[in-house]
């Protein structure tokens, strides 16, 4: 009850804010030199560089509705190859919802409708004949709370390759497991206890196990939904370092609550506000020179 009330309060406040200060919000938009090309009037309210030069995924006018609630409005955004894209914004702004569109995880939520176009390597993944199974094999996901399966560490990582039939032999499977654990910087910590249950690891280790599990199926994109929010600072640092290493081979989309984390790990940052994508751009630029009033207010800590 309370949550819902405060959410709608926030919405009301924000729209009031927008209505009372039209000149203020527009005055702070600074369409200067480089922006002219990327500043796209067509896309509601979004400022900055929506498009990437080497896109892996390209979303155009994506809308999400839960029943009557319009959770995501006309979001257009690219995820580039070998880049880390951070999505930030106050809670309830729709960043997680948008993330879950990218591998159609919203299909599992009852009453959720997604419209618009999402291309992966130029192919629309929203088309009705697209099977979500191979799609999710290409767009992996790591969740907010570490959720290792109640199986051994080995079996956790082997799960994906097994169901997708990626390994021809047990030796090959072992190779995949070992290399995934190595890539996830977990190998040294667990190599002696691969048969132990994955749930027995510490929180940070569990999350790296989940990352290992995701990369064992060789995805092209990895989606991370606040992967460090349940972890201590040391584990967080390890995961952040890992994300930076993984960028060499994968495109990574990370939703985060922490602006510092976004600044540390990402190359590009998208700022969401109440279902609208407000501003996208190079991370360095967003945090130093935000173009939109709301972005500036958020990163300077006026709300959020």
């Amino acid at each position: 009850m309370n949550e819902r009330a405060s959410e709608s309060d926030m919405e009301a406040q924000a729209s009031q804010f927008m209505a009372e200060n039209p000149e203020r919000t527009s005055a702070r938009r600074r369409p200067t030199e480089a922006d002219a090309a990327t500043y796209d009037r067509e896309h509601r309210g979004t400022v900055g560089e929506l498009r990437s030069e080497v896109p892996r995924m390209r979303c155009t006018r994506v809308n999400v509705r839960y029943g009557d609630k319009h959770a995501i409005r006309d979001v257009s955004l690219d995820v580039g190859k070998n880049e880390v894209l951070a999505m930030i914004g106050p809670s309830g702004c729709g960043k997680s919802t948008f993330l879950r569109c990218l591998n159609r995880m919203n299909d599992t939520v009852a009453g959720c409708r997604v419209t618009g176009e999402i291309l992966l390597d130029g192919k629309d993944i929203m088309a009705p004949d697209v099977d979500v199974v191979p799609l999710r094999a290409r767009v992996g996901m790591v969740f907010q709370k570490p959720n290792p399966f109640p199986k051994s560490i080995f079996e956790n990582v082997a799960f994906g390759p097994r169901i997708h039939g990626l390994a021809q032999s047990h030796a090959e499977l072992e190779e995949i497991v070992v290399s995934s654990l190595q890539k996830a910087n977990l190998w040294d910590e667990v190599k002696d206890r691969l048969a132990h249950p994955g749930t027995g690891l510490s929180g940070g280790q569990q999350q790296r196990l989940c990352i290992a599990r995701a990369i064992a199926i060789q995805p092209e994109v990895i989606l991370m939904d606040e992967p460090c929010s349940a972890l201590d600072p040391i584990s967080t640092a390890k995961i952040e370092q890992l994300i930076d290493e993984l960028r060499r081979n994968y495109s990574i989309c990370i939703v985060t609550h922490s602006m510092q984390q976004a600044a540390r790990v990402s190359q590009r940052t998208a700022y969401f506000h109440l279902g609208d994508l407000i501003e996208v751009g190079d991370t360095d630029r967003i945090f130093v020179k935000p173009q939109h009033q709301l972005t500036e207010d958020y990163i300077t800590g006026r709300f959020g």
């Binding site: 999710r136 290792p148 399966f149 169901i163 599990r213 199926i217």
Partner: peptide
């Protein structure tokens, strides 16, 4: 979610 997220049917 974990299993679906990895493409399990």
């Amino acid at each position: 979610d974990g299993a679906y997220g990895m493409g399990a049917t």
